[in-house]
Each structure stands twice: as C-alpha cells, then as structure tokens.
C-alpha cells in the first residue's frame, strides 16, 4: 500500500470503559478512494471505533490519523458520519434541519442551500423540502439523514449499517449514491454485518470480534487466505491420485463434481500436475473462494 494513498490510519488503539475493554490493540489502514468494509458482529467494538474516528471519544492508547492529522475538530469537518441509530428533529422543516447540520460542519448557508436543493432533487424529495419530519416515511427520513452526511462534501464517509430498515428499492438507490461518491474519489467506511452487501461493495475489509481484529486486507487477499485449500474438480480418470492421503484430506461428492479439501501443506499445483500425469481428463479445476459469510461465521465462531 502506497503511503500517500492512506486516508485513515488506526494504530494500536485501545479503548476501555471502566473494567470493560471495548477495543483492544486495533490497527488498520483505509486506502484513499476505496470502499472499506468494517465488519463484525454486534458488540464487537465497531461503533466504539467509529466514535473515536469521528472524535466523539478519544482512544486510551494508540493513535488515529486522518489525512496525516491527529483527530481534532478540524478533521471532524472532513468526515460525514451516518450513525446506525439516527434521527431528525421531529418538528422542524426538512431544509431547516439540513441547513443546521451543514452549519455545524462549517458550511455557509448559501452553499448549503445549493447542495440541499441538489441532493433533494437527486433523491426525488424536492416536494418535501418544507415538510416536517413527522410527515415523512421511514425510507424518506433515512434518505434525508444520508443527505445530511454529505452536505459538507466530506472526503471520508462513515456509514454505520446504512441499509438497515430500507426496502430493496431504496437500498439500490443508496448503493448507487455510494458508487457515485466513490467515483468522485471519496473514501467510504462502511460498517455492516450483512456480508453479501459488503462482498458486493467493498475493496478492503477488516473483521473484528470481541474488541480485536480477526482478519483484514483487500477482499481478494482475505478470500485467498481462506480459500486456497478448497478445490472444485470435474474430471475423468486419475483415480489413484484421489486416494493419496498426503495430498487430499477429504472429498465431498456432488452431482457432477467433487469438492476437494487439500491436506495441510499440500499444494494445489502439485495435485493438478499429478492428475494430468495420471492421464485424467480435467474439465474443471477451480480454487474455490469461500464467501465472506463463510469466513465471518467460521472466524466468529472459531474464536
């Protein structure tokens, strides 16, 4: 990873609440312009970590840097944060609250008004500009909350469970918006426990459980580090090789293919070579990547 490309650097961060350690010795980097998946079960320490990044709380140990700067009121203005549990002022008009949230991020009223109009248009909510929150449906207010996090044109966007409670149409809408921001070279941290969405959107991931990092890196690296000992094979012949216990730990027969789990220290390339040498006709030989979901379940259960 190139140094200049790092937006956020978290180094050896620990946070305790009384006797309880919420985050322990956590380190990771978020690359500029990438979508970073922050994964973990509920209570793993995701929200605590995010609160330290946005400057709500400070770490007890370790350091956090955004664009090479320690977290401070200035770095707060570069972050757009959409918390998991979020709300709007009930009795205030939509554009008034959006203006207020923008002002708190240091945006002038004129600029804020332009952006409010742009985003309301973009989200098909222009007609609701002068309505109050109580008049909105749940999906609409979530879109408004999303708008409030991007009004100050932040370089880093932190979305904590952004799709919870959204219907599929609105989920697509939000995914498009995220993709658009990514195209503008914004960095996006995306916290979720929905592995399918993470798999679809993220370039890099980190998985934390019980306050500690379990695994991290680019999506590809993570999957490969998991998937290298599982092979899907469709072949004819080469039967003797498949009996070799030094190569193969386990074979699961499927309708027209076999799932082969390699023995420890065995190499897939050697298996392939031996099969060919033994005259097997191979129509499929694939190193299978486990889904993020599989990794998640195994890692979280295994610890």
């Amino acid at each position: 990873m190139n140094e200049q490309q790092v937006t956020l650097r978290v180094e050896d961060v620990t946070k305790r609440y009384g006797g309880f350690t919420a985050v322990e010795d956590l380190s990771f980097n978020v690359r500029a312009g990438k979508v970073f998946g922050f994964l973990g079960p509920n209570g793993a320490g995701k929200t605590t970590t995010i609160r330290m990044i946005v400057g709500i709380t400070a770490p007890d140990e370790g350091r956090i840097e955004l664009f090479g700067q320690r977290i401070s009121p200035e770095t707060q203005d570069k972050i757009g944060y959409l918390p998991e549990e979020r709300g709007l002022y009930k009795k205030m008009k939509i554009f008034e609250q959006l203006r207020y949230f923008a002002a708190l991020k240091g945006v002038s009223q004129k600029l804020a008004d332009e952006r409010i109009d742009f985003w309301l248009e973009r989200m098909n909510l222009s007609d609701w500009k002068k309505k109050k929150t109580t008049d909105l449906s749940k999906g609409m207010s979530q879109k408004i909350q999303f708008i409030s996090t991007v009004l100050h044109d932040p370089d880093l966007l932190i979305l904590d469970e952004p799709f919870s409670g959204l219907d599929p149409v609105n989920v697509e809408f939000m995914i498009e918006a995220v993709a658009e921001l990514k195209a503008q070279h914004k960095t996006i941290i995306f916290s979720t426990h929905l592995m399918e969405t993470a798999e679809r959107l993220c370039d890099d991931i980190i998985l934390i459980n019980k306050s500690r990092k379990v695994i991290g890196g680019s999506l590809r690296e993570v999957k490969q580090s998991f998937g290298k000992n599982l092979i899907a094979l469709r072949s004819e012949g080469g039967g003797a090789v498949l009996e070799d216990r030094s190569l193969i730990a386990k074979i699961t027969e499927h309708a027209d293919e076999r799932e082969i789990e390699l023995a420890a220290n065995a190499d897939a390339q050697i298996l392939l070579k031996k099969l060919i040498d033994n005259g097997a006709t191979i129509s499929k030989f694939e190193q299978v990547e486990p889904s993020l979901n599989d990794i998640f379940i195994e890692k979280v259960k295994g610890i």
Partner: peptide
Amino acid sequence: TRIAEILFSS
C-alpha cells in the same frame, strides 16, 4: 432521537 451522535461528531 440520537441526533446527539451526529452533533457530537460535528
């Protein structure tokens, strides 16, 4: 309404 979370991050 948990607006506090947004306010505190600003």
